[in-house]
């Protein structure tokens, strides 16, 4: 299958000289349409920097990314963000305190230029319904009036309303209760099913990666040290770091 996104030898260095820190070192991978890839690693492994590079919130020091074969540097940012959207860890920080849900969603829709009011309304309603929220009750609310789970669902609704080809989810469930994590991950699963969206799922929790994704990239100190189908990486891991990561996961049964 043709790749949606090709990442080639991507690197990012912060600082310079003695203090230079290479947060991402020569990362390469391909992402197929409709595929969910998890990027797993401990704090400081460079996984969030990778997410920001893919979102073009940071520019790489070296390397290249191709979206459907086209060098992303040649795509204007606004056009790029129509195809690539994000859900972040902390929905409270990602949400303007003074915006109602309606205003937040409308603002996002301006990426597409002027749309008729009817169309805008229809899209907002559809997106909220697809994440299990009632538009009539939610649209007028402000972030402090929503629960953590509702806020994160609004952020997912915002992202899927834009029908991106690729969703970068950076620790979308870390701030949520365990009882809600499954709900949000199921939501991502369903979105992929319905819209054929590809997802890059960044997490430090290998259990969640195992549940949601097709393929896993394990990052350690800025490099991808192991990569493969989920079952293979989890059940027959090769790299010592992956093995350590797995052995550090608390055992639940037995």
């Amino acid at each position: 299958m043709k790749s949606l996104l090709q990442v080639r030898a991507l690197s990012r260095t912060f600082g310079s000289g003695k203090r230079a820190l290479q947060a991402v070192k020569g990362v390469s991978f391909d992402l197929a349409p409709g595929e969910i890839v998890a990027v797993v690693g401990e704090s400081g492994s460079g996984k969030s920097t990778l997410a920001r590079l893919i979102l073009r919130l940071l520019s790489p020091t070296e390397g290249q990314m191709l979206l459907e074969g086209q060098d992303v540097q040649r795509i204007p940012l606004r056009t790029y963000w129509r195809s690539v959207q994000a859900v972040f860890q902390d929905p409270y920080a990602a949400f303007n305190q003074f915006y109602s849900v309606q205003r937040l969603l409308q603002k996002a829709l301006t990426l597409f230029g002027p749309l008729p009011t009817q169309e805008r309304k229809a899209r907002m309603h559809l997106a909220l319904q697809s994440v299990g929220l009632e538009p009539e009750r939610i649209l007028g609310k402000y972030p402090h009036q929503l629960s953590g789970g509702q806020r994160q669902r609004v952020m997912v609704a915002r992202a899927i309303m834009l029908r991106p080809r690729l969703l970068v989810a950076d620790e979308p469930t870390s701030a949520l209760d365990a009882s809600l994590r499954a709900t949000v991950l199921n939501l991502l699963k369903d979105v992929r099913q319905k819209h054929g969206m590809s997802i890059i799922f960044i997490t430090h929790d290998i259990g969640q990666a195992y549940y949601l994704s097709d393929r896993i990239l394990v990052m350690y100190r800025g490099e991808v040290v192991e990569e493969g189908p989920v079952e293979q990486v989890v059940e027959q891991s090769q790299h010592p770091y992956t093995k350590r990561l797995l052995s550090d996961v608390p055992r639940f049964h037995g």
Partner: peptide, 25 residues
């Protein structure tokens, strides 16, 4: 029981079914 069922751990059983969160608040 619902809390236990919503747990996502890298153990084979979780890939074989849909894990449900707890509805409502």
């Amino acid at each position: 029981k619902a809390l236990v069922e919503a747990v996502l751990v890298p153990e084979p059983y979780i890939r074989q079914r849909r894990v449900e969160g707890i509805e409502g608040t």
